[in-house]
Every structure is written in C-alpha cells, then in structure tokens.
C-alpha cells in the first residue's frame, strides 16, 4: 500500500467534504451516518481485517465511546472534547481487557467472535438496566451549539470533522500496513505458528491490535453521540453497529486500507436508495435496508470474495496500463 493507492480514498473524502456546498441536509445527514459507520469499520478492520481476529461485538467499543462522552458531559460537566478523548482511551482499555481475557485463553475464530458478541450483549443489558447510564430511557446530551462543546450549528462543520477523522485513520492504517506492526498483524492472521517461529510475540500483537481497534471504533461512538445528542443501550451497544462494521469491511475488502470506507458508503448508499425507491413504490417498508444488507453480503461473498478492493485490484491487473 503506497501513497499512490491512498489518493482515491482521500479524493473521495475531499469530494464528500465539498458536498455541503451543493447538497441538501438530508444528503448531509446520510453522509454523516455513513462516515461514522465507516470510522467504526476502520476500527474493526485493524483487528478483523489485518490481524484476522473476527469480532461480532464491536458494539462494545462503539458504546463505550458513546456513553463515555455522554455521561462525562451530563453527570460530571466535563468538556465534550475531553469526553471524546476519554471515550477513545476507554475504548482502547476495554479492547485491551477483552483481548487479555480472550486471547490469553487462546480463543480464536468463531470462539473469539462469540465471546466478543457476549461482551457487547452484556454491556447492552447492563446499560439498559443501570440508572447511571439512563436505563431504558437513554441519555440526552444538552443542546449547546458551539465549537467548544463539539456541537455545530451547521451540519457542514460536523461533516468536515468526521471526514477529517476518517481521513486521519486512513493515513494511520496505511502507515501501519506499510511498517513492521502491519506485517506482524498480517503474519498473525495468516499463520500464528509461523509468526511465532519468526520472533513475533503473537499475544502482544493481538493485544495492541484490539486496543487500537477499540480506540478507533470508540471514536466513532463518541462522534455518533455528539451528532444525535441522544443514545440508549440498543443504539450504543446494539448489534446493528457490530453487524454493519463487519459487513462494511467484508464488502469493501477486509485487510485493505480503503475497504471499510468504500464498504460503509456503498452499504449505506444502497440501503438508502432501496428505502427511497421502495418507499415510492410500495409505501414505507420498515427494515428494507437490512434486507438489502443481507442481499449485498451474499452477492459480495459470492462474486467479490476479497471485497470491492479485491475486485478493483483484479480489474487493474486485467487492464494493465
């Protein structure tokens, strides 16, 4: 992955950043949601795509970020930016703890996936029950627009902030993929014993991967909370986000730098279009986007086993310049 391979992604984000000048608020809201999922998916990609540790429970990190930001502001009057930083740090810590518990127990493959799902579900149930997290009623962050509160009167500025964050993680991922840590992540994914024989501390690599992954996905949760100013347990820790980041990565190309961003945009784009088209034909059909997600996943796995990025790469190889 060289800088040359990165520019389509950055160009795409720049294009999105220009949208506020031409597009309606509906489009901007759509882009915001898609980019927040893209950011969460970038987090998943580090652990699931590069290190090959498939997680079904990234909602755990997303929710940690969202709740940390919200609770620190509401209950402790902490500044929202500090809340964002704390949320990201908490995501890393929770990632490390989940990793330490499950990787030390040598859980791999579907066992690891199920344990992550269990962590996320337990957190969801706890958050739904505890008063501290607002229980089933959820939490409202007080509306107080201002840069210092990480709330912006115009959608445009928030979109730029999110697009900028996605771009930053894109650069971070490209930098990791190029260096020693990236090579070790992939080595662990491909063959743990061979990695060990070549001096790779497999446990340490996995722990670093899950902490970083948790931090990035938690950042997405923080931004989600600041965008909607409301959250409850089924939003923050709900399986929807675990599933969406997974599908976005698989569809876009897990273990590629641009895959999660492309996947998230494509997924949300198609889901949105399906909602609008079907809405005009047959009236509102709740959940139709989920049906589309499922269909896309089937088609993606059948025809693009390495995601959109893998498909593009094959195209490029077929038509050499």
């Amino acid at each position: 992955m060289s800088a040359r391979d990165l520019w389509p992604g950055l160009a795409l984000l720049a294009l999105i950043a220009l949208m506020p000048f031409v597009a309606s608020n509906t489009v901007l809201n759509f882009l915001l949601s898609a980019l927040i999922v893209a950011l969460a998916a970038q987090g998943w990609n580090i652990l699931g795509g590069y290190a090959g540790q498939l997680s079904f429970g990234h909602a755990a990190f997303f929710g940690m970020g969202a709740y940390a930001t919200a609770i620190l502001q509401i209950r402790y009057g902490v500044n929202a930016w500090a809340g964002l930083a704390a949320g990201i740090a908490l995501g890393a810590v929770v990632g490390w703890v989940i990793g330490a518990l499950s990787f030390r127990a040598r859980l791999r493959g579907s066992y690891f996936a199920l344990v992550t799902l269990a962590f996320a579900e337990v957190l969801r149930i706890l958050a739904n029950a505890a008063d501290f997290t607002g229980g089933a009623a959820g939490l409202l962050i007080r509306l107080s627009p201002g840069v210092e509160n990480l709330q912006f009167p115009s959608r445009a500025v928030f979109l730029w902030l999110v697009a900028g964050t996605v771009a930053a993680v894109l650069l971070l991922t490209a930098w990791i993929a190029r260096g020693r840590f990236g090579a070790r992540l992939v080595a662990v994914r491909e063959n743990e014993d061979a990695a060990r024989a070549l001096g790779v501390d497999v446990l340490a690599v996995k722990l670093r991967a899950i902490a970083l992954s948790g931090a990035v996905t938690a950042a997405a949760g923080c931004l989600y909370a600041q965008n909607f100013l409301y959250l409850d347990a089924s939003i923050a820790y709900g399986t929807w986000i675990s599933v969406e980041v997974l599908i976005a990565c698989v569809l876009g190309g897990a273990g590629t730098v641009l895959g999660p961003v492309l996947g998230a945009l494509a997924l949300h784009g198609v889901g949105e279009v399906a909602k609008i088209v079907l809405g005009q034909v047959a009236g509102p059909v709740p959940g139709v986007d989920l049906v589309v997600f499922g269909a896309l996943l089937v088609v993606g796995i059948a025809f693009l086993p390495r995601g959109v990025m893998g498909g593009l790469r094959r195209l490029v190889q077929r038509f050499p310049r």
Partner: peptide, 23 residues
C-alpha cells in the same frame, strides 16, 4: 516462549511448510 528464542537467535523451519499463503 518460541518468539523469545527466535529473538535470541534460534530459527526453525516446519516439516509441513507454513507459508503466509496470502502474501
């Protein structure tokens, strides 16, 4: 552990080859 021995200067190959197949 094996990775520490590798760091000390002991390297092994596997009888059943273990390539990183996707790389």
């Amino acid at each position: 552990p094996p990775h520490r021995r590798a760091a000390l200067g002991m390297a092994r190959t596997f009888q059943i080859v273990q390539p990183f197949a996707g790389l």
